[in-house]
């Protein structure tokens, strides 16, 4: 009887599924084995992907053609990343770790610039504009939304945003009895904000539960299908 890859993969998946589900009874060596194997396999695969899909095709392979070419620009385009990569590897040595500052500074600087620019352009401004448009009747009409709904939706959203931000205001004054309490209006708005935050967290929890439930269903289904192969 030849073992097909599907059978092998099915058996292994069944085995590791059982090992992971053993966590129901608590932390145990079987669960640890499954975790360690998963971490090891994932790390190895990630290293392989980085080497063969990043370093080799984009750093090593172009060296020969670039060296043979007479274009200084190409030399610069390949020499700078190569030098930066070598300097990053200098972090391995404690004595030479200072040399990696140049590469890390470049990466951090570029990453920060991209992130900040993307957040400004892709999130902050559009979200503010969207919040304002909730009160725009023309846009609401284009969406076939009545004015009442627009105002209501806008009001709710505005209330939720404001009260959620006020909830995180911890400026307080000491009363005569020695207790620390916020002002009454802030206390009221913070209480409302607590409701919105609670609802949001509840929705997030429901989504997490749904995701996990779906994953469980999928695993149980795969196990059943595996047993079905032998039936």
């Amino acid at each position: 009887m030849t073992l097909s890859p599907d059978l092998i993969s099915g058996a292994l998946s069944f085995l590791f599924t059982i090992l992971i589900l053993s966590y129901v009874i608590g932390d145990n060596p079987l669960f640890r084995v499954a975790i360690y194997v998963f971490v090891g396999v994932a790390s190895g695969y990630v290293a392989s992907v980085v080497i063969w899909q990043v370093l080799v095709p984009r750093l090593i392979t172009p060296l020969v053609p670039t060296a043979m070419s007479n274009s200084p620009m190409q030399w610069v385009m390949i020499a700078v990343p190569l030098l930066g990569s070598i300097l990053v590897f200098a972090k391995i040595s404690q004595r030479l770790s200072g040399l990696a500052r140049f590469s890390m500074a470049y990466l951090v600087g570029v990453g920060a610039a991209v992130t900040v620019a993307g957040a400004m352009i892709g999130t902050l401004l559009p979200q503010v504009q969207s919040t304002i448009e909730f009160f725009d009747p023309q846009i609401a009409a284009a969406r076939s939304i009545t004015t009442a709904e627009v105002v209501g939706n806008g009001a709710i959203i505005l209330l939720g945003v404001v009260t959620s931000l006020i909830y995180f205001h911890f400026g307080a004054h000491q009363k005569t009895d020695g207790t620390m309490r916020r002002l009454l209006p802030i206390e009221i708005l913070a209480w409302i904000g607590r409701i919105f935050i609670g609802i949001t967290l509840g929705a997030v929890f429901a989504g997490v539960y749904a995701t996990a439930l779906t994953a469980l269903i999928e695993r149980l289904s795969s196990l059943i299908n595996f047993f079905g192969l032998f039936s």
Partner: peptide
């Protein structure tokens, strides 16, 4: 196409 936990 997202999972249920990230949709909100």
């Amino acid at each position: 196409i997202s999972s249920a936990q990230s949709t909100p």
